[in-house]
Write a protein that binds this DNA or RNA. Sequence first.
DNA 1: TCAAAAGTGTTTGTGGTACACCCATGG
DNA 2: CCATGGGTGTACCACAAACACTTTTGA
Lengths: 222, 222
Amino acid sequence: MTKTSDIFVTVDIVIFTLRDGDLQVLLVKRKTPPFEGRWAIPGGFVQHDESLEDAAARVLFDEAGVRGVHIEQLYTFGRVDRDPRGRMVTVAYFALVPAPLALHAGSSTSDAQWQSVYNLPEMAFDHAEIVHYALKRLRYKLEYTAVGFQLLPKTFTLSQLQKAYETVLGERLDKRNFRRRILQAQVIEETGEMQSGEGRPAKLYRYRADAVAEVKARRLFP
Amino acid sequence: MTKTSDIFVTVDIVIFTLRDGDLQVLLVKRKTPPFEGRWAIPGGFVQHDESLEDAAARVLFDEAGVRGVHIEQLYTFGRVDRDPRGRMVTVAYFALVPAPLALHAGSSTSDAQWQSVYNLPEMAFDHAEIVHYALKRLRYKLEYTAVGFQLLPKTFTLSQLQKAYETVLGERLDKRNFRRRILQAQVIEETGEMQSGEGRPAKLYRYRADAVAEVKARRLFP
DNA sequence: TCAAAAGTGTTTGTGGTACACCCATGG
DNA sequence: CCATGGGTGTACCACAAACACTTTTGA
């Protein structure tokens, strides 16, 4: 067995957000071959002196302009022929960007754009596979952890939260059952503030920092 | 941003088996620095022309002498200083070796040895962290999928299966509830054969190849 | 006939699901 | 006063948990 250092290590990030009642991911249009003109998820080479997490955070900041959001490792893809330029192993991450922060990206630079995860263009490399896998994981996680809040602003109404869950899961949920379960799980608390708009004003909630993120022993939405 | 190819990509595998009613992992004693004399999990460099899965399967065969067993990607570890020799990113896997196949390794070569996961020696690199993470994942998986059979021979009794679950989970389970749930899940079927030994002979079961591995919507052992 | 392990049912509690109406506000 | 979205309770069912004795074989 020989050491082989001619393998490049990259990170690629599936960045999710909620926009227009839709679950979207940030895509960049490739300006060079291979796959010139096709869409790809943001990524970059891991530098010699940065950890994988640091590399992922750097790419996330460069492309989406956000820091400190939920990010977690997804899977590592290493098919031999996944990049025609050479041997590339990519550590894929996914990130959840709160809806209001998602405005920065996609508007200024024309090569980065939010697109519906339910209607993806043809993608470069194996990125379609990566995005589908990320969606599967996100849905799965949503069912048994409290990660859904990461897609919302700091304070939110129960209806907004329910809409977020419905958008990600792709199904409608019963309002009374949703509210009962979320409140029973003790992961959110009232702020005391109200939000008014059309109709009756709604209580605002915030995520409880001391809450146990993993909702133990039973899936939240089986 | 520059391409940096001076990052080495390795695979490391946490190989689990059941021996002597104990959950054990295969460890190798390092014969060279760094961490000379310490125990490590088996691993190797990813070759230029093999996928990550192929590399993992190769290491598994070289070290444990088995093929075709359950193996899955665990996590990728990439701390900058995790190996004093240089920048190493390791894609960690875990494998489940059926009890009877676990005899090959550890007996012949004196530098590979099965050791209890509940009483690990001091380990090289960040391998202690990797093993602990693997155990956590294995337990978690056992609770909501049918992966437990992968640690048993092709046919087995319900008592053996229950003992396997108890050994991995580290807790005792109720016999009647265990049997009812396992049978209801329809993941195993009777072979028609019996196994005799001390006491009343037991029905032998086999894993149903057509069974859905993911036990949907509810954890098997909450 | 005894030791050792296999096998079997019932009760009780908890949580999931389904379901329809009144409330508070702004225009 | 009406349109709009916010907020609430109950009945039924399915599954989880707790729990002890009988059966079959080999020694």
